[in-house]
Design a protein around this nucleic acid. Sequence first.
DNA 1: AATTCGTGGCA
DNA 2: TTGCCAAGAAT
Length: 366
Amino acid sequence: MLQKIENPPYAEMLLAWYDRHHRDLPWRTSPPMTAKGLRANPYHVWLSEVMLQQTTVQAVKPYFAKFLAQWPRVEDLAAAPSEDVMAAWAGLGYYARARNLKKCAEAVANAHGGVFPDTEEGLKALPGIGDYTAAAIAAIAFNRQAAVLDGNVERVISRLFCIDAPLPGSKGAMRAKVAEITPANRPGDFAQAMMDLGATICTPKRPACALCPYNSHCQALDHDEPERFPVKAAKKDKPVRVGAAFVAVNNTGEILLRRRTETGLLGGMTEVPTTAWTARIDGGTDTEHAPFDADWEAAGTIVHVFTHFELRLSIFRARVSGSIPFGANDEWWEPITNLDAQALPTVMKKAIEQAVPLAFNKSRKT
DNA sequence: AATTCGTGGCA
DNA sequence: TTGCCAAGAAT
């Protein structure tokens, strides 16, 4: 019977695995270049890390390419119109990230001479950079021995050491464990290796333990129950909210749009006029709350699931002629052929598509 | 500490 | 189908 090693060389074991099995990603500098001291571009690392917050690699890839093509340096992003940044981010979700991305770019370009801070503390002082992202950039871009703890690492660590306490309360204990095994040599590769392991081997369901470099040292696997970790607090149920959205098209092929307020849900993004989204169905939400009088026609409903509620939107459409007097706010007429350039979140694209089928095909350049 | 923030893929 | 959840941050 194999004797259990008291203090396995966790970092060395994982780095050896990473050298063979790392993912090649657009924002990443991979071994063996990193082993020779070459590091990734801090701007690329920062941009990818913000995009990857609560977002899958596959979803991020095209956005990362688009942003880098449009704004090759952080100074370019800092100088960009906010509307352009929000439009480029549209569809990726969690739009506070885009607002903070712009603020952070401005801070780096103007207050830091275009150079990212190279410490966790300095990075965390910037908008949109929290514990995880500060540690990740410090480790990956600047080779700092920072304890990087994300959802992947939480899974790996909780299984490796059988941490029973539920998240998020146990996050501190997990970070301490990560700090314990993070090496002075190649800390950035170690962080990315932990995340790659969590993403490809130590998965939430049916982990591929037979292929794991830690399979002879994993306490959860010893107890034959890796899928039980990490333990998480129970989540709340999702309430339903209802509302109505109004899609107006004029006789020159334009649609009435407006900009949402800067904060809160979908803050700073573009929308068609809607009622408030309320918890109860108040009988006649409908055309009495329309932006103006018109021959509003019911066009069905759409259902869209947000993080903390489900929205059922009744869709109304009207074809209007002549000039419609706007309320004195942020409304404008936008050619349907230009919808793809707008900062429309997915729920609004659904609403428009419901009222005007193929609206987005019309704006697609072919 | 608990809420509020999107979206799409997958079993 | 429904739920889960993916490189979290801000308040």
